[in-house]
Design a binder for these strands. Sequence first.
DNA 1: CTCGTTGCGTGAAACGTTTCATAATGTGAG
DNA 2: CTCACATTATGAAACGTTTCACGCAACGAG
Lengths: 343, 343
Amino acid sequence: MAANGRPGRSASVKDVAALAHVSLGTVSNVLNRPDRVSAATRERVERAMTALGFVRNESARQLRTGLSSTLAYVMLDAGNPFFTDVARGIETAAEQHDLTVVLCNSDNRADRERSHLAMLEERRFRGVLVTPVDPDSPLLEQIAGRGTPVVIVDRTRDDDRFCSVAVDDVLGGRTAVEHLVDRGHRRVAFLGGPDNIGQVRDRLQGARDAWAEAGLPPDDLTVLRTDSLDVASGREAAERLLGQPSSRRPTAAFCINDLVALGVLQQTMRAGVSVPDDLALVGYDDIAFAAAAAVPLSSVRQPRELLGARAAALALAESEDRDHRHQQLLFTPELVARASSLG
Amino acid sequence: MAANGRPGRSASVKDVAALAHVSLGTVSNVLNRPDRVSAATRERVERAMTALGFVRNESARQLRTGLSSTLAYVMLDAGNPFFTDVARGIETAAEQHDLTVVLCNSDNRADRERSHLAMLEERRFRGVLVTPVDPDSPLLEQIAGRGTPVVIVDRTRDDDRFCSVAVDDVLGGRTAVEHLVDRGHRRVAFLGGPDNIGQVRDRLQGARDAWAEAGLPPDDLTVLRTDSLDVASGREAAERLLGQPSSRRPTAAFCINDLVALGVLQQTMRAGVSVPDDLALVGYDDIAFAAAAAVPLSSVRQPRELLGARAAALALAESEDRDHRHQQLLFTPELVARASSLG
DNA sequence: CTCGTTGCGTGAAACGTTTCATAATGTGAG
DNA sequence: CTCACATTATGAAACGTTTCACGCAACGAG
């Protein structure tokens, strides 16, 4: 317990061995295969360890064994509760396998994503999970090429060079719009963008599929583009929406995610327009703030924690299996109907 | 560029040296002191490096040099936007010094905090920033004792054994209540808990100070305890508040943070009680969702990103200065008045 | 008494880097 | 032509672990 005050070099196995009058190898055995050591010496070594405040140097260990016991998740935006929930799922799964998880936030910036991936590659983690800003970054293949499992989270790629977990966004879009059509809406707006995000395209696709199958005129499903996926974009889009003459204005809006939907909700209430009577609203993700909104928000729920948990499991499996086959998991979203779309 | 397909051991300096027909040391010089190497050989070595897909092994480097270039932030709750904003501040500051940051989420659990700290100690990071679940954890002193700078973020400790950054919570509580008194409120509720959190005690203390200085009867500042600091607790506390006969009911509530305030707001609107006319509301933290609420929320803003940035700077300074004196930084909160407290 | 076995402990080698003292070569001054 | 000196490159040592092939006793069986 003697937390040696001097900031000098901290104790190594060598120091412990000297103090306990045993060899290096024995100390290592106490650490890694305690059963191969007699009770008496084990105890002596352990006493020496606490006396010196010995803490194993993970760099040396990893250098020698080539093994790491930590997983990394490079998240797209730590400020979006969706991703922190995914992270929670990863952590829970990792915990069950005695792995620790570190989080890296690329904050929607490709350069920061690059620097994180480069750092992770140099450190040879057990596995790298990533929701990429740039799904085509060569660094991803490079890391995988070095033997580190890479799992793509919440994004799809056309190839099968990585494991991935994602949610069926086409189906999610379809589900949302089917719900609105069921509730009797005949003029609906899709609020989302930018278009270069695959999920935006997929959800819109699903929305259009449902609309067409209901036999409704394509022009009555209007699309309002947003610049990004946050609350401010929602407010801004709502202004455009509410600017339309109420005779032609959509009676419902399907928003690309809950942040946008919350922005719309706020702007709508401010304008004295009633939700859901004058405008029904469906969001996407079902983050905790959705249920807690002024008018509880209907939303297409993604199994966020499950997504993370399965991603972690895939990385682990890949790191253990000698000959591993990549898997692409696709989960099913589920509509949670609340007051914002129920009359 | 030849991303060697074989998953076998990846290239080392030795391999590069062999391919470039130079010695180990020269490769290392190319990496670390390129000016000490002639242009011709440097280029030859660099070609060999890309040909082999060489990536420096950080474990070996760190083992040899004892230096690390990454900072860790152990955050209390990644789901609370307050902490992700602090993290953003850390990342921005770190980036300017070419350090990378990893985030660890203790998710309000002491055991997870312990396992993260243990992992960080074994990895000998450049610095450890932490908003502790348990500010008295012996692991903190242990890590610091080993020579790793430890900075306590958004918590205060009585001693000066660490650097710390925090915000003056007594002043914050005082500011909130002064504002409400100024607006004419004579019956006010404080919503917050549990009491074992220092910040809860401090903000309540400030609230009471302001109340007393205004010469108002102590009993008219009522305290409603909450079990935690989330939206659900806010809803629950609001129910208790609204259950009181309106003649005696407080006309304003000061909430321990914005999540609680959002819960109160939601429950209040649902009950048909008007904010701010029937109940004024002030939150704390000024997270992004506060301004975006159905009724924009007044809040006591903490300089979140600044907090993070200064914490990172302190860690860095401590890691560089030979003889370093710990500093305790205390920032000043600032009231942001919005519709929820303005008639 | 001998021999295989079992239980414990040993010490050297290896992981991939950086550093440092030293060697080899070229250059310009005297 | 020699000497001092700068410029480059070299190779061994070291960082702190883990592993592995061996010793060494003690022991029970034959």
